[in-house]
């Protein structure tokens, strides 16, 4: 629906990656035909995100183990699982924010962090200090900072990219609003706009649609689908199984390790979910009900400050 024109020159100066040609191959991508028989070397060579037998955690606590995974370019992937299943940790590993204990990870063909300027990461809402004195425009402009580098100030191109991103998420009229004054859905929109303004090849989004109204959810998912259709890769954690089934092409169910990975309709069946969620799941006449608080999130990693609304946002 959105004919999204990049703000800068149409093709990145570095030239499109060789596998980019696959990206717009069509709606039913050939990648699932192979299923588990997919040649690992082939998967590795063509993946935007690749993990091989990865284990990770905090201190003594194991969060993930034996995780192997290849995410192809143009994927729209939901990571689902109960609280403490390691969803956020997995995202942080991909973002280079956490290091694996064992195993190998490659992101955009490099070790995590090496291609950081092509990655946009959006943290959980609880990790953001909403009382911080920045406006909507300031936050979205941050998406442009890494490419600018030190000393250089944001120029006309950057301002255009910021405005365009805010128009896409429908927040252009809130440029000067302090972020703490926004509703939960508006805050998520602004952070997605920051990611869009960065024009990344890989989106890593921690709970982008948690606790927001259906209209905003539709809007954000539409934008992410458009990005995936352009060959960008989107990996998002979510508690919302309905949203995962409806909007994401693929689902990765995790609970300390990979429970299932594949097209959403195959992964989100009762058996797989029961394994992923244990006793937190109820299947009622074909309807799956998740007995899980959507506002919970994974435990704070050491050193992380959590900000909850009402405590500091409004003064």
């Amino acid at each position: 629906m959105n004919a999204v024109a990049p703000a800068g020159p149409l093709a990145p100066a570095a030239g499109p990656e060789p596998h980019r040609a696959h990206r717009n191959a069509g709606t039913d991508a050939p990648r699932h035909e192979h299923g588990d028989a997919l040649d690992p070397a082939h998967a590795h060579a063509h993946a935007d995100v690749w993990l091989s037998d990865v284990a990770a955690g905090y201190g003594q606590r194991v969060a993930l183990e034996h995780v192997s995974l290849a995410v192809e370019p143009g994927s729209l992937l939901a990571v689902v699982g109960p609280n403490g299943a390691g969803k956020s940790t997995l995202l942080k590993l991909m973002a280079g924010l956490a290091r694996p204990w064992t195993g190998r990870i490659e992101v955009l063909g490099q070790p995590p962090g090496r291609e950081a300027r092509r990655v946009a990461y959006v943290p959980q809402a609880e990790l953001v200090d909403w009382a911080f004195p920045v406006t909507v425009e300031d936050v979205v402009a941050m998406g442009r900072f890494p490419r600018l580098g030190p000393v250089r100030r944001p120029g006309p191109d950057d301002r255009r990219a910021v405005r365009q991103a805010l128009e896409q998420v429908g927040m252009a009229h809130h440029l000067q609003t302090q972020i703490g004054r926004l509703s939960g859905g508006q805050r998520r929109r602004v952070f997605l706009a920051r990611a869009l303004a960065a024009e990344p090849d890989l989106f890593l989004l921690d709970e982008p649609v948690t606790g927001i109204d259906p209209t905003t959810q539709e809007l954000l998912m539409g934008l992410l689908e458009a990005q995936a259709a352009r060959g960008k890769t989107v990996v998002a954690t979510t508690h919302d199984l309905a949203a995962a089934a409806e909007h994401f092409h693929q689902v990765l169910a995790v609970n300390r390790t990979v429970i299932a990975y594949g097209p959403s309709n195959l992964v989100l069946d009762a058996d797989v979910l029961a394994r992923a969620y244990g006793g937190h799941l109820l299947v009622l006449g074909g309807q799956t009900v998740l007995l899980d608080d959507a506002h919970h999130h994974d435990e704070a990693a050491p050193g992380e400050r959590h900000f909850h609304d009402g405590s500091g946002a409004g003064r």
């Binding site: 950081a116 990461y121 936050v139 941050m142 900072f145 890494p146």
Partner: peptide, 22 residues
């Protein structure tokens, strides 16, 4: 003056900043 942007981003959202190469 040279690093106000980077300092601001890292102060406001250290995870987002680090993931994007700051």
């Amino acid at each position: 003056a040279a690093l106000w942007k980077e300092l601001l981003y890292a102060t406001f959202d250290p995870l987002g900043a680090a993931a994007s190469g700051i």
